[in-house]
Design a protein around this nucleic acid. Structure first.
Lengths: 229, 229
DNA sequence: TAGGAAGTGGAGCGCCTATTCCAGATGTCT
DNA sequence: AGACATCTGGAATAGGCGCTCCACTTCCTA
């Protein structure tokens, strides 16, 4: 007798058996560790091995890679959201903005997987994407406030934020081992460029739609997706 | 009877048989095309297939991946060197520097493989690396001249150049398809940050040694090297 | 034009990957 | 304690990869 109506699948909230829940947690912990070290294209086997479970267990709990990624990075996404909240709460919006960018880039530097997550979308991970949308709206407010102080240049575009994250991801990928603080230099330059005092004409930013499409590019499938195109 | 003393291997300059030379050229052409489209981690098979030759032919002519990369990008490296020469010849060193950066970043945008090449070293490809060294020396001159004009900020470091290329590579990887001009925005910001007028204190740049080690990180082996670490 | 060096391509090896399947172990409820 | 759904891990499938080997072909020279 099922303690849950269980029409077909455990209705998304159904409690797992205790051992299963334990294993789920172990997989997530392993995934977080491995993704942080190797990036999003780490192999499923490596994660299962580290978790000390069979691959089948991993796949049963997280049928698609997006499921695993979304679950593994849920906490970091919250921290990411917190960063905007803190920035909005800062007494000076410009300083809030600067601190926000540094904090987020630091998060990228600390976690290669997260660096990738911030430059991608995961359309099937709904909670994830809703959160991203919410963060985006708060970010708009932050930018407006920062511009209102007269310190952030008025032509700074919302799309410039993911652009920075992409650039930062590039630096981190290349320098993580040999020069782990190199990204600070990049961000330092950029923040000075974002100051209103420095403002000179710029090329147009990519449109929001373009940027969204860029974020929607294929997530780094460990292998195989390469040949499908 | 060999028309060449041929102690063991064709002494690096030995003429290939006409058909072999033709195939060599076809492989290079294919490699250039495939690298440009897919990046340096394109599969050897894909290149051979496109060239219309067997994989053995490719490996006979280019025993290591570095051999192939060095040969495929030799021309682009010359164009890259030319960019510094032109910059040095410019009447105004600051404008020369700006044009140089834009031109090089454009080259990255036009060729995903080359974008990677510029953020890596290939220790076994001697001619390649000597050229890189020479370019580096000219670049130092260019930076000095640009600083002497008072327009390039004095704390701009030589190491900042590869840093920019890494950042640009990150943007290009992410936006190539959806927003192919996004990189211009990044470079636009950076150039404004490099202007002496905008100069504010910055984090220290990575040391040259660090940057060199970062460039020396493993080239993207198509697959396999991942598990060796 | 004939002989042999030079060059060829695809089959094959070993390794890696994702994903599925299923016989057997485990937890949970009565 | 017994019964049974739940959960498990490793074997198995199917594929991609780099790279090598070798029976066969092509070119060049004399």
């Amino acid at each position: 007798m099922a303690r849950i109506p269980a029409s077909e699948q455990p209705p998304a909230g159904a409690a797992l058996r205790a051992d299963a829940e334990r294993n789920r947690e172990r997989v997530l912990e392993a995934a977080r560790h491995v993704f942080a070290e190797q990036g999003l294209d780490a192999s499923t086997n490596a994660i299962a091995r580290r978790a000390g479970v069979g691959v089948a267990t991993l796949f049963r709990r997280f049928p698609t890679r997006e499921d695993l990624i979304a679950a593994a990075f849920a906490e970091k996404m919250h921290a990411y959201a917190e960063a905007v909240d803190d920035a909005l709460a800062a007494p000076d919006a410009w300083h809030g903005f600067c601190a926000y960018l540094e904090r987020v880039c630091q998060m990228q530097a600390d976690d290669r997987g997260f660096a990738d997550v911030l430059t991608l979308t995961f359309p099937t991970a709904k909670a994830f994407e809703e959160q991203r949308k919410e963060i985006g709206e708060k970010l708009t407010k932050l930018l407006d406030s920062a511009k209102a102080t007269g310190r952030l240049r008025p032509d700074f575009a919302h799309q410039d934020v993911p652009l920075i994250l992409m650039a930062n991801a590039g630096v981190i990928t290349a320098t993580k081992d040999a020069a782990p603080d190199a990204w600070r230099r990049l961000v330092g330059y950029l923040l000075q460029a974002f100051a209103a005092e420095a403002a000179q004409p710029l090329p147009d930013p990519p449109s929001r739609a373009q940027m969204y499409r860029a974020l929607k590019r294929l997530a780094p499938t460990p292998h195989g997706a390469r040949s499908s195109g």
